[in-house]
């Protein structure tokens, strides 16, 4: 490989992003894996995230940070769920258009919650993950999903209902 100072023509590669890579890779991969629960998908989205960083730096953007990478990974995750939603839409009818929510005050079991989330429709999973796992305010969730705040609130109602229905039908049953 070329090394600085020994090569007269092209510049040495900027190791800025590469030196960040070792530290940032487990953060980005861990973030994605915990939310998409698939090693193959997490690897794909991790690759897309870092390549986006290369392009952003080449375009003269600010130096990449872990926070920037996580934000970009979140966008990649939303894109992934959106693709998944399109694929599954033809196979399955979204149930429950009623937006009336019964009061529910369960104490959620973490492992069971994760399993329930994994099994939800991608749209519901995206909304709940961004809103509650990532703890983002509704307007941020709306922006990430490309929806209005009102539509996002309605989606969250449906997603919570779907979650509750799935949760109560698994494991120990309704309290």
């Amino acid at each position: 490989m070329s090394s600085p100072g020994t090569r007269a023509v092209g510049p040495p590669p900027d190791p800025g992003l590469l030196s960040l890579y070792d530290r940032a890779l487990p953060e980005v991969y861990g973030y994605l894996l915990a939310r998409c629960r698939s090693r193959a998908v997490a690897e794909d989205l991790t690759g897309e995230t870092f390549l986006a960083a290369v392009r952003a730096e080449a375009a003269g953007g600010a130096p990449t940070t872990v926070a920037w990478l996580i934000g970009t990974a979140r966008h990649k995750l939303v894109d992934h769920w959106r693709r998944l939603e399109r694929e599954e839409r033809g196979l399955r009818l979204l149930h429950g258009t009623d937006e009336v929510e019964d009061p529910w005050d369960a104490e959620l079991d973490a492992l069971r919650s994760q399993q329930v989330l994994d099994a939800l429709a991608p749209q519901h999973r995206a909304a709940l993950t961004l809103r509650y796992v990532d703890d983002l305010p509704v307007p941020r969730v709306a922006a990430l999903l490309g929806r209005t705040v009102h539509a996002t609130e309605a989606l969250l109602v449906r997603a919570r209902t779907a979650f509750r229905r799935a949760y109560e039908s698994t494991g120990g049953g309704a309290p």
Binding site: P26, E27, G30, L33, E43, P103, Y132, R160
Partner: peptide, 21 residues
């Protein structure tokens, strides 16, 4: 009980880094 967000609040939390393959 009237707060629909309440049960879901427990889902938030830091995500541990994971070293990939």
């Amino acid at each position: 009980a009237a707060d629909p967000d309440r049960p879901f609040r427990s889902l938030a939390g830091p995500t541990p880094p994971v070293a990939p393959d």
